[in-house]
């Protein structure tokens, strides 16, 4: 090195050697960084993996039944949990919307309803609602970062949008899914015209109802509400004398055991001639009357997919021939499933 290029000890200036070396280093560093992007993916996770997180969230929503997820048996699905009870809230592990793990793309309406029922995280501990955004981040989106999100759903034949989350920024991870949503509530119409008996009996053999393997078309009294429409009253002032009774047939055979229907929900509700819930009995009936077995009622009283039961109603007039009405696929019907579009946005 010549004397002219040599810097004095007190000089604060950069040498040309250093600048050249540093420039080469930076070019090499940037080049290597670009080439080795896969190795640096963890450093970039907040900006690169939004699409991946959105995809994963979409898969959990559409293809996973959530946890707890027991579809049949006596254990509740997550949408039947009472989230105002801390122990039940703690048992909620994952928010999936599908009917079953083996039937991806078939969603359950009640899970959707529960999913879009939320309260802010600071005020949700004693209400039967999901905590926003904590439950969604911890039980649906997962991940190391508290991702922001917007999840929305709309039926194709309906302009109403259901959503949870904030307004997304211009750039976000995105996935759109389309799925079928099972509409709950099998219903059966009873012809309660002038006959010989004051007792109306509805028999439900769960083993017959659950023989259908595809849950999209299965009448599912353990997880969904059941509606019995009372039609063709021909005797004026026909009244239901008492709240309905449930009779349970033992699996080993023998006489059925009567079971008192609880007052609080989930229970069996009776609606009178005006469409209001019967508060006292006798309760006046008309052709717009119906009874509803609320979802979760049969699980509450520990029924399972092999139970055989009868719902017994007593009227003040002879409106039945005394033989039981059989609630099965030939007498009851399910509403057709709806097509829904779901969008997940993550940022």
């Amino acid at each position: 090195m010549s004397k002219k290029r040599k810097l004095s000890r007190e000089s604060g200036q950069l040498s040309i050697d250093f600048l050249v070396g540093f420039t080469i280093f930076m070019i090499a560093f940037i080049y290597v960084t670009m080439m080795m992007s896969g190795l640096l993916i963890n450093f970039m996770s907040r900006t690169v993996d939004y699409d991946a997180v959105a995809y994963r969230t979409g898969v959990i929503l559409v293809e996973d039944p959530g946890e707890p997820r027991y579809y049949i048996g006596t254990t509740n699905n997550w949408h039947l949990l009472d989230l105002s009870i801390p122990a039940e809230r703690d048992s909620l592990k994952r928010l999936g919307l599908s009917l079953q793990r083996l039937t991806p793309g078939y969603l359950q309406q009640q899970k959707i309803d529960k999913f879009f029922t939320f309260a802010s995280s600071s005020a949700c501990s004693n209400v039967d609602a999901l905590c926003y955004p904590r439950d969604y981040q911890e039980k649906l989106i997962f991940g190391d970062y508290p991702y922001y999100f917007n999840i929305s759903l709309r039926y194709l034949n309906n302009p109403n949008i259901r959503y949870v989350g904030e307004i997304p920024p211009p750039k976000y991870g995105y996935i759109r899914r389309v799925a079928k949503v099972k509409q709950p509530g099998a219903s059966m119409e009873l012809n309660v015209t002038n006959w010989t008996s004051q007792n109306v009996i509805i028999r439900m053999d769960f083993s017959q109802l659950y023989r259908i393997s595809n849950p999209l078309y299965r009448i599912d009294p353990l997880n969904e509400k059941i509606t019995i429409l009372l039609r063709n009253f021909t005797i004026p002032n026909t009244m239901m004398q008492n709240p309905p009774f449930v009779y349970v047939y033992p699996s080993s055979g023998g006489a059925p055991t009567p079971l008192m229907v609880p007052v609080d929900s989930p229970t069996i509700l009776v609606y009178d001639s005006t469409g209001s819930r019967c508060a006292s009995y006798p309760c006046l009936m008309s052709n717009s009357s119906y009874i509803t077995v609320e979802e979760g009622f049969f699980k509450r009283i520990r029924f399972d997919e092999y139970s055989l039961i009868e719902i017994n109603m007593t009227f003040n007039q002879p409106v039945s021939d005394g033989s039981p009405y059989i609630f099965d696929y030939s007498t009851a019907s399910l509403p057709p499933p709806e097509t829904a579009v779901i969008e997940v946005k993550i940022w």
Partner: peptide, 26 residues
């Protein structure tokens, strides 16, 4: 470099394809 470079990786392209494929299958 680490915080501002948009890294175009094969995974990104795959995800965009996957969105379309998923929607078509649905």
């Amino acid at each position: 470099v680490i915080s501002s470079t948009t890294v175009i990786t094969p995974q990104d392209i795959h995800i965009i394809d996957l969105q379309l494929e998923q929607l078509g299958n649905d």
